[in-house]
């Protein structure tokens, strides 16, 4: 199951809620304001590092670009909208709105 998060972790508990329900191996994709979670060296970096031990983490590159985020946490993969569709091909979707 693909989990998507579209809220800044500084404004919403979506990320912290989502990870309580996350099964090991399931990908997490940050989109829209969600991408602020993976900016390198912010206060959520240790949490992202923990998630990465059991789950692949992705962020939507156009959303990073739009927000001026040039450096993401180590291990976070970036993808475009086609990459997003690719994840949806492989998984059912759980959008944490």
């Amino acid at each position: 199951m693909l989990h998507t998060i579209n809220k800044s972790p500084f404004a919403s508990d979506s990320l912290e809620t989502c990870i309580r329900f996350l099964e090991p191996g399931d990908p997490v994709l940050f989109i829209e304001d969600g991408v602020y979670a993976v900016q390198a060296a912010n206060s959520f970096s240790p949490l992202i590092e923990i998630i990465l031990k059991s789950n692949p983490v992705f962020a939507l590159q156009p959303d990073l670009d739009a927000r001026g985020i040039t450096l993401v946490d180590n291990g976070v993969k970036t993808l475009d909208y086609e990459g997003f569709v690719g994840l949806v091909e492989e998984h059912q979707v759980n959008s944490w709105l």
């Binding site: 909208y81 086609e82 091909e89």
Partner: peptide, 19 residues
């Protein structure tokens, strides 16, 4: 909210990929 824009970009990408 950006939701409408993301949904549209997602739809365009999916169609382009043959879905």
């Amino acid at each position: 909210h950006q939701a409408s824009d993301t949904a549209w970009k997602f739809a365009e990408a999916a169609i382009k990929m043959g879905h």
